[in-house]
């Protein structure tokens, strides 16, 4: 079930300049990458040449390059270099599929439905990233386990859960990876100390058990 609007897909701090990562949004494969200048890009995770995942590729300067045949794509999605044809002036029609993306409140967001023009930006906030937690349960089950894990009431606003954990207010980005798996991008408002952050990490780990995942014994 697609909720039109901005969906969080990663914590900003987890995608370093010059790196890429793959993820899923409701089963659709996407790549998020950050160029050396610091801008985050979110695209279909597919090289238009042979369909290789671009998330397996590597970032150099303002390009992401496919690991398979080295086709290089600039931030607009346009292919700017094909190593097998070094003299070729690459036609402007060769492009990766790009999606509207932005950063706010410590997270990288993509606009849904994928490929639609961006709407008004997501709410911003000053936060400390805690962690992204990937769970082998549907998003609804992850949401249901949150109040017990963090011992506080939860309000959902679109793809964000606001949770009052007593000592700290959590702002949690909600990502449905597929119908059966989910990711929580957990941030805390303000600048909590290390002790509080470690407590939040322990609670996030316990959330796996609450959500029904077994201990790997």
């Amino acid at each position: 079930m697609t909720i039109p609007g901005w969906s969080p897909i990663a914590l900003s701090r987890d995608i370093e300049a010059g790196s890429s990562a793959g993820t899923l949004l409701e089963g659709q494969e996407i790549v998020v990458w950050r160029d050396q200048a610091g801008t985050a890009h979110v695209w279909e995770d597919r090289c238009p040449h042979r369909g290789m995942k671009l998330s397996f590729g590597f970032v150099r300067g303002d390009h992401i390059t496919c690991l398979y045949h080295g086709w290089a794509f600039e931030g607009s999605g346009r292919c700017t270099g094909i190593p097998a044809h070094p003299a070729l002036d690459v036609p402007a029609t060769i492009c990766a599929t790009t999606y509207a993306a932005t950063e706010a409140a410590g997270m990288i967001w993509v606009f849904q439905p994928l490929g639609d023009p961006a709407g008004p930006p997501p709410d911003d906030a000053t936060v400390t990233p805690v962690r992204s937690l990937v769970l082998d349960v549907p998003l609804e089950a992850a949401l249901a386990a949150l109040p017990e894990a963090f011992e506080g009431p939860l309000i959902r606003e679109g793809q964000v859960a606001l949770l009052d954990a007593g000592a700290v207010q959590l702002r949690i980005g909600l990502q449905a990876l597929s119908a059966t798996r989910s990711a929580l991008h957990i941030t805390a408002l303000g600048a909590p100390g290390t002790g509080l952050l470690l407590d939040l990490l322990e609670r996030a780990q316990w959330l796996r058990r609450l959500a029904g995942e077994e201990i790997p014994a």
Binding site: A10, D14, E16, S19, A21, T23, S55, S132, A183
Partner: peptide, 14 residues
């Protein structure tokens, strides 16, 4: 096993 689900390990591996 993809690296997608392991942001802390991706940063560490780099």
């Amino acid at each position: 096993i993809d690296h997608d689900d392991f942001p802390a390990l991706r940063l560490w591996a780099r």
